[in-house]
């Protein structure tokens, strides 16, 4: 392979998409199968841990428990004017997910040349992983 071709391939980051898992309904959940494209970049366990944790956080956000019901009933009784005064539980949890992904990126993924794109930026359809190519050896 010619040298200039290698550099051209090296500049374009590879994308890996983790798709939604609908087996348990339409609640937001992502597939935990390890994409082979990440081999040699991110350990299998590291990847599954991250996705499992993201799934767990989404499950907590959509959980049908007392806090969600209370919030739903109260806001309904105020004609949803309450939404102008409080931040909803779901929105708070989304911020937590955002923070978690940021931390994972800073601590684990960025040093290995991978960036996790928040699923909120992709309509929750997928977790996009951008795999930056390793730099060429200096001559």
């Amino acid at each position: 392979m010619a040298a200039n071709e290698t550099t051209e391939v090296a500049t374009a980051p590879k994308k890996v998409f983790v798709q939604r898992d609908y087996t348990h309904g339409t609640e937001c959940k992502y597939e935990t199968t390890y994409p082979t494209q990440l081999e040699g970049v991110i350990a299998r366990e590291t990847f599954t841990d991250t996705v499992n944790k993201i799934n767990e956080l989404f499950e907590r956000a959509e959980e049908l428990g007392c806090p969600t019901y209370t919030e739903g009933c109260l806001s309904c009784m105020t004609g949803y004017l309450l939404y102008f005064c409080i931040e909803t539980k779901y929105s708070k949890e989304m911020k937590q997910i955002s923070l978690f992904i940021q931390r994972q990126n800073d601590e684990i993924y960025h040093p290995r040349g991978v960036h996790i794109v928040e699923p909120m930026l992709r309509g929750l359809r997928c977790i996009e992983l951008v795999v930056y190519p390793a730099p060429n050896k200096p001559i």
Partner: peptide, 22 residues
């Protein structure tokens, strides 16, 4: 490297990546 703890469960994947000639 760089203070990042190495995941001993899967050492092979923790190596710094070098460009793989295809």
């Amino acid at each position: 490297h760089n203070g990042i703890p190495v995941d001993h469960t899967d050492l092979q994947t923790q190596l710094p990546r070098t460009p793989t000639p295809s």
